[in-house]
Simulated assay, not measured.
Amino acid sequence: MPDAASPHRADTTSGKVGLSKVAARAGLSEATVSRVVNRRQGVAEKTRDAVEKAMAELGYERPVRGQLVAIMMEHVTNPFFADVAERIEAALAPHGLRTLLCPAFPGGVQEPAYVDAMVDKGVVAVVFLSSSNTVTMARTRTYERLRLRRIPYVGVNGVFADGVAVPVYSTDDLLAAELAVGHLFQLGHRAIGMASGPAGNTPADRRVRGFLEAMDRRALSDAHRLVVRQSFGVEGGQAAAQTLLARGATAIVAASDFMALGAIRGVRRLGRSVPGDVSVVGYDGSAVTEFVEPPLTTVRQPADRLALEVSRSVLALAGRREVPVGELFFDPELVVRATTGPAPGRA
């Protein structure tokens, strides 16, 4: 961003001086330009387009200090997503932006309600942190509302249902599944099961696809029978584990750390041990997984790199600078701890 002492920066942040130039270029009043700059309602789309064009031609950057970035997220209590949100906050705060966490069930009514309430409150960008952007059939009114008001938005771990090209930053779920299956295969496991989230959830669907491809590369047949779809929580992991063990699985790849912890509980309630009888691999890599007993083997998402790129994108978009659109994938990392071991009989 331009230096605070530069002539351009002084001109664009000096209130009426900057607005007067934009108004003159657009042929409109300063009051109208102010409404567009601050993304207020009551401005015709044609008028808004004229002001946006004038701003682009003059290189005008919207002032953002003291304004809000909304973070839509379902998993407020999930340590991984809380970590990403905290890192985004830390990266944006030095630039004068504040974050607002908006707990919303993906595809539910909360997201549109939040957007309707915030579009006139100085929101300069919205981050969909594994929220409705993970639902393949999500309603698109929220995104349409944001585009109408020229409020940029980005996604984490899932593209948007409306198909509009915006920045999206995702962990490579196919590689994550390959890392987990490859690790268990090297330990001698052949009956490897997958405990994944519900169908229609983009990360869950991708992790299942990656799992099946990894199994197929190793000529492990009947992999589809060893996929169980459940909720992402502890209870879903427990139920999935009990089903998978009934089908003969000696190892479980879980689609989240919480599911993995639930799987461990399910294994133990059936009188079996982890990793002696059954190995379990989680996914997310939140810090708490190091301190459970036994410490959880997991595939760690790169929270630091995801948060950094999201923050850079938000800062650029808030300043009306272009950023690359489409989905950018980040490599996960296998963290081997104590919940995986040799397959029974192969110690």
Rank of each mutant, 00 (worst) to 15 (best):
M1L: 10
T12G: 09
G15T: 14
V17G: 09
L19K: 12
S20R: 14
A23D: 05
A23E: 06
A24K: 12
A26R: 06
A31D: 02
V37H: 05
V51S: 08
E52N: 13
M55R: 13
E57K: 13
R65M: 10
R65Q: 15
L68N: 12
V69G: 06
M72N: 07
V76M: 13
F81D: 03
A85C: 02
A90Q: 05
A90F: 00
A91V: 00
L97E: 04
L97T: 01
T99G: 02
T99L: 03
L100M: 13
P103C: 08
F105H: 07
E111V: 10
A113C: 04
Y114V: 09
A117R: 14
M118G: 03
G122Y: 04
V124N: 02
S132Q: 12
T136E: 15
R141F: 02
P152H: 04
Y153E: 04
V154L: 12
G155K: 05
G158Q: 07
F160K: 10
V164Q: 13
A165F: 01
D172W: 02
A176Q: 08
A177F: 10
A180M: 04
G182Y: 05
F185G: 00
L187T: 05
A191I: 00
M194W: 03
M194N: 12
S196K: 00
G197P: 06
P198H: 04
P198I: 05
N201Q: 08
D205C: 05
D205R: 05
R209C: 01
F211H: 09
L212D: 01
D222R: 11
H224I: 01
Q230I: 00
F232W: 14
E235A: 08
G236Y: 10
G237A: 04
A241D: 01
R247W: 10
R247E: 14
A255R: 04
D257N: 13
D257Q: 13
V267Q: 09
G271P: 03
P275K: 13
G282M: 14
D284K: 10
D284T: 11
G285C: 12
G285Q: 12
G285I: 10
S286N: 14
V288R: 10
P294T: 08
V299K: 08
R300W: 01
R300I: 01
Q301F: 02
D304Q: 12
L306H: 07
A307Q: 08
E309D: 14
V310A: 06
S313L: 02
V314K: 08
R320V: 00
E322A: 15
V323Q: 13
V323Y: 11
P324Y: 06
G326I: 13
E327W: 11
E327T: 15
L328M: 11
E333N: 03
L334C: 08
P342A: 12
A347L: 09
